[in-house]
């Protein structure tokens, strides 16, 4: 569930980032729109998706994606737009086409920032997926809810600690990937 959500978030988020970069007049409305989605409480978003997707994993995945789009799309857009002029100029002067400039220069140089966005998305996705337990998406969230309802301290503590550990671990892995990319591509940022 986590991986599926993350996969689609990255796919769609990066696509939106590239799209808004290529069509700047859409950038403000699209990113502001995603920003509004972002401020809606996660429980509320999940609940609103219930009539459309029923209960279970689908609304959880969709909610995760909706949350994760903003950081990924925004960072992709910012990264693509802010590559230092000198690299763009030299690439153009060497005779790269606009397309080649985008994919050979701008995109790779934006990777550290995009990875930063994905790292935030990892945290968001983890949060929403856990919450999914409340609407029958199963997983660790369900265990937590059971624990609370049965007032079972052991279950709550163990599951809570495990969720926390998993989240910190995933965030750490994403962080390592991010800083590796920074070291590799990010001498300018």
């Amino acid at each position: 569930m986590f991986l599926v959500a993350l996969f689609f978030s990255i796919l769609i988020g990066v696509f939106i980032g590239i799209f808004t970069y290529r069509n700047p007049k859409f950038a403000a409305p699209v990113l502001n729109g995603l920003n509004v989605v972002e401020s809606v409480p996660d429980v509320a978003l999940l609940v609103l998706l219930l009539p459309i997707f029923g209960i279970g994993t689908e609304p959880t995945i969709v909610a995760s994606i909706l949350y994760s789009l903003l950081p990924i799309a925004r960072n992709t857009y910012t990264g693509l737009s802010n590559v230092p002029r000198v690299y763009i100029e030299i690439a153009e002067a060497l005779g790269l086409t606009q397309r080649e400039v985008l994919f050979q220069v701008r995109f790779p140089l934006s990777l550290p920032l995009i990875a930063g966005g994905i790292r935030i998305a990892v945290v968001f996705t983890m949060g929403v997926v856990t919450l999914g337990g409340l609407i029958a998406a199963g997983g660790l969230g369900a265990a937590l809810q059971n624990g609370i309802q049965l007032y079972d301290m052991g279950t709550i503590l163990v599951t809570g600690a495990w969720v926390g550990f998993l989240a910190v671990l995933l965030d750490g892995i994403a962080g390592i990937i991010e800083s590796t990319l920074k070291a590799r591509y990010g001498t300018w940022s």
Binding site: V129, L134, L157
Partner: peptide, 17 residues
């Protein structure tokens, strides 16, 4: 930074015990 990665639901739940 660490705590921000932990899902809210887990934080809320752990408060109970």
């Amino acid at each position: 930074n660490l705590v921000q990665a932990v899902p809210s639901f887990a934080v809320v739940a752990v408060v109970v015990p």
